[in-house]
Amino acid sequence: MTIFNHPFHLVSLSPWPLLGSLSILNMIFGMVDWFNSFNNTQNIISMITVILICYQWWRDVIRESTWQGLHTLKVFKGLQLGMILFITSELFFFISFFWSFFHMSLSPDMELGLIWPPKGIIFFNPIEIPLLNTMILLLSGFTVTWSHYSLLMQKKEFKTSLLLTCLLGIYFTFIQFYEYKESFFCISDSVFGSTFYIMTGFHGIHVIVGTCFLLVNFFRSLKNHFSNIHHFGFEAAAWYWHFVDVVWLFLYMFVYIIGG
């Protein structure tokens, strides 16, 4: 056994980075083929291989962390910093959309009739479906905090509250889909439709990703992967979910109430 005089984790040789990059490259070619010839076979196969490679890769990371104990305090701090920087990059991603929204809504162009929303746009009532979605996400923020507290206090409500958060995320996604289905305007209806669907659509994608993130942690909790001092996988998911909640509050306030 080799003993190192440093606290860092030197990862072992792994085929997953190379195979993952090749699968993603193949998926890009498959999407190009799909757009041009409507042949989706290559795209589906490459997506399946990407999912399988991610599963194997993350399985190895879980083994290194949970069973082999290779994630030292220094590694843990690095993972925390990495997640913080990732959420920061996502924050600026949404700031660019809000910048575009404010630029268009605060000073509408002549083509929009100098009004916002443009004439002919029938917008949603902010105290109906949007308010329901806001309540759902606020409740999910409470349940994920409850789940974190239960884990720290070693209470049995951890798994129940985590599952409830996942169900609320799925419920939000279905309500958002219903809102799109009942909409009286589409993404091609002036810059108003473009900014609305881009902002809410990307937020919806983040909700789906966050829900999957929490679901993975729920299944890991069933295998007792977490303790009150070793649970960064869940903590990172909780941070991401709170970020999604905060972004939606700004969307509801500026896009649905003020902008609508």
Results as ranks from 00 to 15, higher is better:
F4M: 12
N5E: 10
N5I: 07
N5C: 09
H9M: 14
S14L: 11
S14Q: 12
P15R: 05
L18C: 11
L19W: 02
L19G: 02
S21L: 13
S21I: 14
S21P: 07
L22T: 08
I24M: 03
L25Y: 14
N26C: 13
M27E: 07
G30T: 06
F35L: 15
F35H: 12
F35A: 13
F35E: 13
N36D: 12
F38K: 15
N40M: 09
T41G: 12
I45E: 05
M47K: 08
I48P: 07
I48Q: 09
I48Y: 10
T49E: 09
V50W: 08
I51Q: 11
I51V: 14
L52K: 12
C54P: 11
W58M: 15
R59P: 00
R59A: 13
V61Q: 06
I62Q: 07
R63P: 06
S65A: 11
T66G: 03
T66C: 10
W67P: 04
Q68M: 08
L70C: 06
L70I: 02
L70K: 08
L73R: 15
V75N: 10
F76P: 06
L81P: 07
G82T: 00
L85C: 12
F86P: 04
I87H: 02
T88E: 09
T88H: 11
L91R: 05
S96Q: 14
W99A: 14
P108L: 03
D109K: 05
M110Y: 10
G113F: 09
L114V: 10
L114K: 14
I115V: 13
P117E: 05
P117S: 06
K119N: 13
G120N: 09
I127C: 08
E128H: 12
E128G: 10
P130R: 00
P130V: 00
L132K: 06
M135I: 15
L137Q: 04
S140I: 03
G141W: 01
V144S: 05
S150W: 03
L151C: 03
Q154A: 15
K155C: 07
K155W: 04
K156E: 14
K156W: 13
K159I: 10
T165W: 02
T165G: 03
T165R: 01
C166V: 14
Y171M: 10
Y171S: 14
F172N: 08
F174D: 06
I175F: 12
Q176E: 06
F177W: 07
Y180F: 13
F184C: 13
S188L: 09
S188H: 07
F196T: 08
F196G: 05
I198T: 14
I198F: 15
T200V: 05
F202I: 11
H203W: 02
I205C: 11
H206Y: 00
V207N: 02
I208T: 00
I208Y: 01
I208N: 01
L214A: 03
F218E: 04
F219W: 03
F219D: 01
S221Y: 01
L222Q: 02
K223M: 04
S227W: 07
N228W: 05
N228L: 06
I229E: 14
I229G: 13
I229S: 15
H230M: 08
F234T: 02
F234A: 00
E235W: 07
W239S: 11
Y240D: 02
Y240M: 04
L249E: 07
F250N: 02
F250E: 00
F250P: 00
Y252E: 00
Y252Q: 00
Y256P: 00
Y256D: 01
I257A: 02
I257R: 03
I257F: 03
